[in-house]
Design a protein around this nucleic acid. Sequence first.
DNA 1: TAGTGGTCTAGACCACTGC
DNA 2: CAGTGGTCTAGACCACTAA
Lengths: 249, 249
Amino acid sequence: MNVETPRARYRQVADELRNAIKRGDYPQGEALPSQPELAKRYGLNQTSINRAIALLRAEGLVRVEHGRGAFVQEVPTVKRVRRIPRGDANGSSFAEEMRKAGLEPRSPLVELKTVPAPPVVAERLAIPEDDPVVMRKRHMFVGDRPVQLATSYMPLTVAGDESIALPDTGPTGLYRRLAERGHRITRFVEEIEARHPTPEEAEFLNLTEAQQILEVTRIAYTAEDTPAETVINVFPSQQWRLSYEWTAG
Amino acid sequence: MNVETPRARYRQVADELRNAIKRGDYPQGEALPSQPELAKRYGLNQTSINRAIALLRAEGLVRVEHGRGAFVQEVPTVKRVRRIPRGDANGSSFAEEMRKAGLEPRSPLVELKTVPAPPVVAERLAIPEDDPVVMRKRHMFVGDRPVQLATSYMPLTVAGDESIALPDTGPTGLYRRLAERGHRITRFVEEIEARHPTPEEAEFLNLTEAQQILEVTRIAYTAEDTPAETVINVFPSQQWRLSYEWTAG
DNA sequence: TAGTGGTCTAGACCACTGC
DNA sequence: CAGTGGTCTAGACCACTAA
């Protein structure tokens, strides 16, 4: 069962570089030696070195910039907490949580418009495909680093109009405004799935296709158990920890 | 920004194989053509084909058996649901959930013994390192397929002795027995993290190191807010969806 | 044994970056 | 321009599987 085959050389190189990074030989943000340099140092071909570095990339330990070099990834791990019960979906908003962690958050609104419901959204909101929905897309940064994508959809019949999503005060405010319009949110379902990023997600989040993201989909139901909103959050899995907290009985 | 470089050939091969699999040209469990065969078909070197297949492996679409071939992965997606509130940690047990999905589950007890608390466990249970803890390790299968690893730890002072983990009826029974001994569980915290598998995890779950797992760590707290138990669940991320469901205040 | 996948080389060419 | 990373080849050898 392949219990003790000698480890492939490129894996050994990856191991050594990984250890060197964790040991602090290459501080965060610093470039690793170039591939030809490493090839010489380890007595290997550049192809093999490239392969070793591909492993570190997939692990999220290293970020590569073509033509510039391979840099040790700064990975400020970020935690997202759901406290239940808590009156609403967010124990605290994204911004509060980041600031509590000593980080400066920004979450610009990228897009706000009414569109025909895409299939998955229609299914989650239990409405016919192509029914109009208000879509709100946000890019979230901590400092300069992109850390999260959030896209929310609401049936236009529930939202009334796009302005419900403004000012952009996050879910807490949104749910209050929904309640004012007669849609009281009483139940939430969040589904968590790991997958590889789409090319667009990979570009914004600065990921390789070999890496993974966590997709957290929330559906908010009204007292009549009608879906009123769904939110799709995309997190680079290496940067995030999700936490759920609740009390028994 | 590398927006439209022609896609690398090995990526194109991966794309075509991926589409062929999704189209059903290669049904689940069936072998792909051999690497030399594919190399001939696409006019590429075996090295490049190997690279293409490595991509599919990392995506979990293909399982490779050395010396035998590359097989289309059967991926029965499995869902784990937490319903809150629900009286205890599990809305329903692993076995119930699997059977509800029409799958035959087995979760043999692999190991049950008292050990000195490893550092992470000690931290989570808020006890000194190397204090004795009862460790229970289970391997979980659906049919013949390994799908999950679960390891739980309880301070020996809380457990009394190892027998509390027997008969192996899952957390519901366990928490009842804990309550009988004066440890009423009132609060739960689950943390979700994505990471690459350790070699042992990779072996049992039949994963590549390039793939990822979801690690769900639960801590159960008593009414006095003392940690009484911690469970570490390891799920192949491609096979699982996690779901949390709760009602608003 | 023949057929499978895994690794490695020596050399090449390309694309991207920064001077 | 020189230096960086990304891809590809032709050929080789190894380890594992099945007969």
